[in-house]
Write a protein that binds this DNA or RNA. Sequence first.
DNA 1: CTTAATGCAACTCATAAAATTACATTTTTA
DNA 2: TAAAAATGTAATTTTATGAGTTGCATTAAG
Lengths: 161, 161
Amino acid sequence: MIDLRFPTALQIVLSLAVAAEKGGQCTSQELASGLGANPSLVRKLLVPLGRAGVTASSLGKHGGVRLARSAGEITLGDVYRAITDEKKLLAARPDVPSVCVVSTNIVEYFDTLADDVEDAVRGVLGHRTVAETLAQVRQLDARRRSSPRSASRAAPKPNAE
Amino acid sequence: MIDLRFPTALQIVLSLAVAAEKGGQCTSQELASGLGANPSLVRKLLVPLGRAGVTASSLGKHGGVRLARSAGEITLGDVYRAITDEKKLLAARPDVPSVCVVSTNIVEYFDTLADDVEDAVRGVLGHRTVAETLAQVRQLDARRRSSPRSASRAAPKPNAE
DNA sequence: CTTAATGCAACTCATAAAATTACATTTTTA
DNA sequence: TAAAAATGTAATTTTATGAGTTGCATTAAG
């Protein structure tokens, strides 16, 4: 099944950034409804994010989730690394037999290649803060409202609300 | 299940590059044994590689597979693109409801982010030719033979063969 | 004590590739 | 022309892994 943890975690963090501007926090229920998902799924993703110091939760009544740092101090790379932990984008074939020069050394080679790819991805994600990303998302929203060629049926009346 | 198509295709192409040096070709059976896999699986991967002009096959008795171009004219990016076709490394969450600024625009944002990541990966893979890669694999092999601290049990007697 | 939140464990479901099997098709060649 | 040996391809089963769900223990406010 396709891995949606990073896009999901990113949306969670962005929603928390919006809430943080108002000095507030979110419940996993609120976050889940923005995702069309289950609160339990949200809480599952909050575990590694909390461990990485990206989010923080408080228990009990009036508990909830908030950003552990300001949105300008969190990069998408932080979120990505927290959520994917060890798993790399590319993985070598396991159990390759050793029958020729290629098969004997391909795994070692591929691991270094996978590392290079991982570094490139982190380069892209590491330069963008959550604050900048939220600003970009709002730009998209402004563009969506100003032009009626709606990309989705989400804004059928761009000038009506 | 984890996607092994690219590492598998890469090993196939490298094996074909070795064979090409001797002016020869390989059967899917030979390729499969170097992978510890099934000839049918190899042939399945050869379909997109052939369509992309990376490999070529001949039917019938004494048929087989060979590189369609020289190893110096094929990049790892060519192999990667052929094998993964449309599928991107990162995919947006589907069916996100539109309940706030973030949820309304996150999919569009994430798609552009996924494209940026894809470009970065292709940057890494597009610069390496199969010929260069084969040379690197052989360097690893030379290093493995000269130092007995074997990374795998693949070469228990580095000076014995 | 009740309420409302997170934390966490157990379970089923869905998906996509791996792996396998079988057979049709195409060439070579004896 | 028939046998052999290869690719092409379709159908099927297996497997791995995240999604999604349910339930409940724990925690803290009032």
